[in-house]
Nucleic acid binder design. Sequence first.
DNA 1: TTGTAGGCGTTATCAC
DNA 2: GTGATAACGCCTACAA
Lengths: 335, 335
Amino acid sequence: MNIYDISERSGVSIATVSRVLNNSPHVSCKTREKVLAVMQECGYVPNAFARGLGLNTMKTIGLLCPNAADPYLAQALAYLERAFRGHGYDCLLICTGSNLADRMQNLEKMKSRHVDGMVLMGSTFIEDNEKDNEYIRAAAQSMPIVLLNGSCQYENVYCVLCDDQQATMEAVQHLVDHGSKRILYLHHSRNYSGQKKLAGYLSGLESRGIAVDENLIRLFSQNKTSVAQVRDYLLSLHQEGLNFDAVLTSEDILAVGAVKYAHALALPLPEKLSIIGYNNSTICHCCDPELTSVDNKLQALCDQCVATMLGVLEGRDMPQKTVFTGELVRRSSTR
Amino acid sequence: MNIYDISERSGVSIATVSRVLNNSPHVSCKTREKVLAVMQECGYVPNAFARGLGLNTMKTIGLLCPNAADPYLAQALAYLERAFRGHGYDCLLICTGSNLADRMQNLEKMKSRHVDGMVLMGSTFIEDNEKDNEYIRAAAQSMPIVLLNGSCQYENVYCVLCDDQQATMEAVQHLVDHGSKRILYLHHSRNYSGQKKLAGYLSGLESRGIAVDENLIRLFSQNKTSVAQVRDYLLSLHQEGLNFDAVLTSEDILAVGAVKYAHALALPLPEKLSIIGYNNSTICHCCDPELTSVDNKLQALCDQCVATMLGVLEGRDMPQKTVFTGELVRRSSTR
DNA sequence: TTGTAGGCGTTATCAC
DNA sequence: GTGATAACGCCTACAA
């Protein structure tokens, strides 16, 4: 069933059928009604591929997500998809995994699918090494790219992010101002966002006149994400004699591990140990006590991603970088 | 840059270029190399829409997900996308929301995008009322549909699911066999899967000769998902004088609420209260004590969804229904 | 092994 | 207001 069939059965040309299809005003009421009736009757649906070929777009946005199973990214996925669809764009999803080669390959795949634009989700997309991001610059030559929680300075690449440094700094200050002196910083990665958070940790300490103890900065393997592993790691630090009265983490799940650590040692929370996570995800409510965490405004970020993308696609001038401010959400894991 | 440009620059016809593109064996080594070189040089990528129009497929599967932010569905999303992509299919994602009208509309949208097949994710897709599922039967006339965790008997609809009744029954038996006498069953919905779980609860009690107390079966509003709300709800039941020594829930998050409830009353777990969740999701590790939960084999289910879909698309005969068996994963929230 | 030509189902540009 | 007709870029008989 195609446009020719409809044209035949309703006694008009395919041009007129097409006009009806596209709500062109240059169709008489009578013809329009007749054509619509025939369409209804036949259950006609225009062929999306042909339309795509003609218009050179299928109104599709590519979402590149390192890991859809991660609760934070999953939430972002939901926000993005909803907003895009609300504006007439469907979303093609590719879970890229976390290594560079896969990401490059998958981005290429998106390009070949001829989507209208891409969103690269999460700070892990931007590598430390400038050269490793070149492929993004290259891809941006054929379509706009929006980075969620990442930053770079390429033509046709737009960045939407939260000021992680500021937010982390405030978390540190909050801890210090409530009596913590030795804050363990536990983090996962050294990517862009990871660097910013670390910088925030350092500037937070500095702002309160506390000297940095390198022993309190701990990089935890990215592959080890289980809560039990984090707990055991902290226990091992404790056994080595490392001393700390607060734990600040770059992700909520790490903070949950810290809670488990405290339970294992029967340390009363938050009296003997304050804990702050990052992302303000739902797991903050799952542990006991509930986690104080940094809310990095995911929904606002996602909405802005969509707004920026739509603006670019409509040819409007859009800001190359949009920065939101995080906010510490206080719960019972801190004093 | 299209096939004509390449044909011109490499001094062959478009047919030959097309052959090279599709790895046809009927091309001399020399021509192939030359054409490939030109393609490389020009950074040529075939137009996906034109190809789609010609082949009548863009190798795309539609994923309809009620809520991508739900950890369980997010994990399913990740499994499905990965497996489909591994077999050459990309995934179009639509988050349908939980009400019927939206689901119908979104399924229609998928149809109009002309995907090769659809996966309907999660038990909420199948309504109690047979009539409300008719739209699925209708959609299946134009493309194969696979149901993840749902069941129905329509032509061209394939079901992959876990035997929730059996698994729930075993959970109940486990509780009874370890001393529980009054098991509160807390659930979220009355959909297909919900009914099965409830049936499992009932048959579990029956198998151990325990009479059903309707007061112990509690439907908790679907809109209220926060842990605190569940806790407060249980506290209110407690205040009303309802007596129970175990809580079995249809979802892990509800079980976390039960843990909070116990904490609020300072009930020792699992001595005074046993708790079992459902889905064996990551939040089982987040609370204290860690949750015993029913593992419903999500990865196996997803892999089977993909295998079934691929089989159907390749024209092979595929089972209309595939059922896996769940398994109780014991942790410290039960004796 | 290679080339020619028609078809896929739209949209868009002309005339009328 | 309506109708021919040419793109859009690829695939694929069929012919050479």
